[in-house]
C-alpha cells in the first residue's frame, strides 16, 4: 500500500507538487494523468524515493520511503523510467537479470531462482527472442519491453511505470497494459503515468488527474473524467462517452478553449 500525504516537492525555486494526497491499496492499478508539466513524473519519482519532498511524505506500508536503504526499497518498489540510454553493449537478458540486483548479496552470482525470475519476466513481456541481442541494437519499443521485463524480474509488490507504452505499437500497448493490470489483479500495487486517457480509463481501476502540481480529481474513471475536470486541467472542450465495445469511458477532445 502506498500513501502520499501532504506532499510538496520543489526543484530550485519552483514548486513542482503541492499538497498532494493519494492512497493506493494493493490490487489496484492507478493511472497518473494530466497535461504536460503537471508533475506526473515528479510524483512517480518521489514515490520511488528519487526526490526528497520538502514537506509531507510518502509511506510504504507505514514507513517513509526516504528512510529506507536503496536495497531495501528496491525489493519493495520497482520503477520503470521513461527511457534508458545504455552506452555499453549489454544483452537484453543481462539487463533483465539486473532486476535481481537488490535480492543478491554483494559477492553472490545469480542463482537458479534469479535466472528463473528473469526468464519468466522475458516470457511475460514477449522478449525471450531478444534475449541475446545487444540493447543497442533494439528499437525504442523493444527496449521499453526489456526494461519492463527487468522491472518484473525485480519481483517487488509495488510497480511504478512512467509512460510504459509511449514507444509501443497498438498491439504492444494493449499487451503491456493487460500485463500490468494482471499484476494488480494478482495483488501488486501498480502506478502508471499515461497520456492516453482512453487507455487509462479502460485498463486502470482508478485515475488521478494532476494539473499545476495538484491533484484535481482522483478515484474511479467516471468520477475523474468529466468535461469540467478536463476543461480545467487541459483547457479543452471535450465529450466523455461510454464505448459500447470496450464498455469503458472514451474522451474526445473537440477544441481548445
Amino acid at each position: 500500500m502506498i500513501v502520499v500525504d501532504g506532499l510538496r516537492v520543489e526543484a530550485g525555486k519552483s514548486v513542482i507538487l503541492d499538497g498532494v494526497d493519494l492512497t493506493v491499496p494493493p490490487g489496484r492499478m492507478l493511472a497518473l494523468v494530466g497535461p504536460n508539466g503537471a508533475g506526473k513524473t515528479t510524483l512517480l519519482r518521489t514515490i520511488a524515493g528519487l526526490h526528497r519532498p520538502s514537506r509531507g511524505r510518502v509511506l510504504l506500508e507505514d514507513r517513509p520511503v526516504h528512510s529506507l536503504r536503496p536495497q531495501v526499497l528496491a525489493r519493495r518498489i520497482a520503477y520503470l523510467p521513461q527511457d534508458t540510454a545504455l552506452s555499453f553493449p549489454f544483452t537484453a537478458y543481462q539487463v533483465t537479470l539486473m532486476g535481481r540486483h537488490p535480492h543478491m548479496g554483494r559477492f553472490a552470482l545469480e542463482g537458479a531462482a534469479d535466472h528463473e525470475a528473469a526468464e519468466q519476466a522475458m516470457a511475460a513481456t514477449g522478449t525471450t527472442r531478444l534475449a541475446d541481442r545487444s540493447m543497442a541494437t533494439l528499437s525504442g519499443g523493444e527496449r521499453q519491453l526489456v526494461l519492463l521485463a527487468k522491472a518484473l524480474a525485480q519481483d517487488a509488490p509495488v510497480l511504478l511505470a512512467d509512460e510504459p507504452v509511449s514507444a509501443l505499437d497498438l498491439r504492444h500497448q494493449l499487451a503491456v497494459l493487460q500485463l500490468l493490470r494482471a499484476c494488480a489483479d494478482a495483488g501488486r500495487t501498480v502506478l502508471v503515468v499515461l497520456h492516453d486517457l482512453n487507455l487509462a480509463a479502460r485498463y486502470c481501476t482508478e485515475l488521478a488527474l494532476l494539473a499545476g502540481g495538484r491533484v484535481l480529481a482522483a478515484g474511479e474513471p467516471a468520477h475523474v473524467l468529466t468535461p469540467a475536470h478536463l476543461h480545467e486541467a487541459y483547457g479543452v472542450r471535450a465529450v466523455v462517452r461510454r464505448d459500447d465495445v470496450t464498455d469503458s469511458l472514451t474522451v474526445t477532445a473537440l477544441e481548445t478553449t
Partner: peptide
Amino acid sequence: MPAPPVPDRAVTGDLPARSPRRRSRR
C-alpha cells in the same frame, strides 16, 4: 472492466522459449 488473463507469452507470441538461462550461464 476485468482485465483478460495474461497468457504465458502474452506480448509477441514467442515460440516456445529455448532456455536463455542455461546457455547464458554456461
